[in-house]
Nucleic acid binder design. Structure first.
Length: 524
DNA sequence: ACCCCGGTCTCGAATCCGTC
DNA sequence: GACGGATTCGAGACCGGGGT
């Protein structure tokens, strides 16, 4: 590569790191510079975060560069405020279904990005805030008497807990970074009264499975909490202690609104994650099963290289991978289950299961058959690609094919697709569903350039040049090797996948898969 | 040790869509 | 019409935990 080539340096877990930082800043009340209050209680926050995640707060804070600003939110329940703050800092919050409409209305009122539909306040709204509401701010005021709220209880009294998750609050954070630089000067207290218009929430069910879904969708998503939810018995006095932000998340039980105590805390139970990896699972790495996540390409490859049927990080280990490995090592070295359990704080049953599974894994068990192994059809004539490239002879395959054969065909089809034959042609040639081949290539960071037929003469081999394009999380070329760059076309004329991967610095691709030690990327 | 459960995650495949 | 990409859904594997 030439010295002028551009490199895109990416911090794969940037999102999760920032999320952890945000959470710690909130927990420790470090650098807080604004206080939100309602119902006689308050939460110390950061202008930067509020401004980034709420168009409403953004405008308020922009107009009031005051240090230690205290904002009273009239007509808002403290639990709503706390949940919204949690949402803005963590990108997600757990809440009972029956309280969901209340929270969403509050989010709409404050224009919380990721929860409110239109997070950008219309000009008219801004004017209204300034003219009508800001005028009502009073210095050193106390919250007015709570207005009797209308009965907004949803008719749906389901028992399902839900998890609201925000996907893109970090981008909003970056966009509003300038707000952090506003220099506060004086202390004021203000009362925010009537919030902006309320918009009925649209409930969007998260697919129970699948990788597509609504990733990146800013609409509120209702996600069922999983086994990570730790139920807290009401009888447990610890469970009823005052809520604080020193915990990963908060679970709001399904108490009636009337049951809210004055301090708004008694119904707030704490969900505490028990392991580091649980945190990881909650963070962006697995966010919405986002196949487009920057980590996906990396982790995918790693998963497949570890020989565990591509299933290492599919579910985060609750007790942490290091703890798990240490415990297993201890067991293998002769430590009893009981001793190991006491040492690592892991239930004996869980340890036993780990041990059993580890033994199975070491036994070179046959990998599970693919979910839907594509089956070979009867042989047909070898097609000729639109570019005139003569396809290699078809191999005779029985049906169904085994996993090794399948992997081999996928690999060869990929090479073929990268050599100047269309993906469709390559897929058809090796009897692979086209989309399967596309997904296979995508997971390896290989995207076929659009390959339309030449229309202005020239030999097929000259008019259609293909190259590998390393794609980033959004599916766009990340600049390492840009498609459409003629100079790069010169650099990579008709390179096979092996040469391409090596040329792009991926290294160790030797035609038999990505070589990591001895392990080829394997398909289950 | 085995089975079951609810939940999570990945992959394969079908379908739809925009582009040329 | 051909093409590649995005979306969506079903299937299967694995997780921790509980029960037997």
């Amino acid at each position: 590569m030439g010295s002028s080539d551009q490199f895109n340096i990416r911090w794969n877990n940037y999102t999760s790191v920032l999320q952890n930082v945000f959470r710690k800043l909130l927990e420790g009340e470090q650098f807080v510079d604004v206080t939100l209050a309602c119902e006689g209680q308050s939460i110390k926050c950061h202008r930067l975060i509020l401004s980034a995640c709420s168009a409403y707060f953004d405008r308020i804070l922009s107009d009031n560069p005051t240090s230690n600003l205290v904002i009273y939110l009239k007509d808002m329940k403290f639990w709503e405020l706390r949940a919204l703050v949690t949402f803005m800092y963590n990108g997600e919050v757990s809440i009972s279904q029956q309280k969901l409409p209340h929270l969403c209305k509050a989010a709409e009122a404050l224009k919380v990005k990721g929860l409110a539909h239109d997070t950008s306040l219309a000009e008219g709204d801004m004017d209204k805030i300034n003219d009508d509401e800001m005028d009502e701010f009073v210095v050193d005021g106390k919250p007015e008497g709570l207005v009797q709220r209308e009965n907004r209880r949803s008719p749906n009294q389901g028992h399902q807990k839900s998890l609201l998750r925000q996907h893109n609050n970090l981008s909003a954070f970056a966009a509003a970074a300038a707000a952090a630089n506003r220099q506060p000067q004086q202390i004021k207290r203000k009362i925010l009264t009537q919030p902006p218009k309320l918009v009925k929430m649209q409930r969007v069910e998260r697919p129970s499975n699948g990788v597509g879904g609504n990733n990146g969708n800013m609409k509120p998503q209702l996600v069922h909490t999983g086994s990570n939810m730790v139920p807290v018995k009401k009888s447990d006095p610890e469970a009823n202690r005052s809520a604080s932000f020193s915990k990963e998340k908060e679970t709001y039980e399904e108490d009636d609104d009337d049951a809210f105590p004055p301090d708004g805390n008694a119904d707030t139970n704490i969900k505490e994650e028990q392991g580091d990896n649980a945190d990881e699972a909650e963070n962006g790495d697995m966010e919405g099963c986002d196949e487009n996540d920057a980590n996906s390409i990396v982790s995918d490859g790693e998963d497949e290289q570890n020989g565990q049927a591509g299933r290492t990080n599919k579910v985060a280990f609750k007790y942490g991978k290091e703890v798990r490995d240490s415990a297993l090592t201890a067991l293998q070295s002769g430590m009893t289950l009981r001793q190991c359990s006491e040492t690592y704080g892991i239930p004996k049953k869980t340890l036993s299961k780990w041990k059993t599974r580890e033994a199975r894994a070491d036994g070179d068990e046959e990998p599970a058959s693919p979910n839907r192994p594509f089956r070979a059809k009867e042989d047909g004539p070898s097609p000729t690609g639109p570019t005139g490239i003569v396809l290699p002879p078809k191999t005779t395959m029985g049906a169904p094919i085994d996993s090794a054969d399948r992997a081999e065909r996928l690999k060869k089809a990929t090479e073929l697709a990268m050599s100047g034959v269309t993906v469709r042609q390559a897929a058809a040639h090796y009897e692979i569903p086209r989309t399967t081949l596309c997904a296979y290539m995508k997971r390896r960071g290989l995207a076929a350039k659009r390959n339309f037929l030449p229309n202005n003469g020239g030999g097929a081999n000259n008019s259609v040049k293909r190259m590998a394009v390393k794609v980033d999380s959004t599916g766009e070329a990340n600049g390492q090797v840009q498609a459409g760059n003629s100079s790069h076309y010169e650099d990579f004329p008709f390179l096979g996948i092996s040469e391409l991967m090596n040329e792009m610095g991926e290294g160790n691709y030797e035609g038999d898969g990505y070589v990591d030690g001895e392990e080829e990327y394997s398909e289950k």
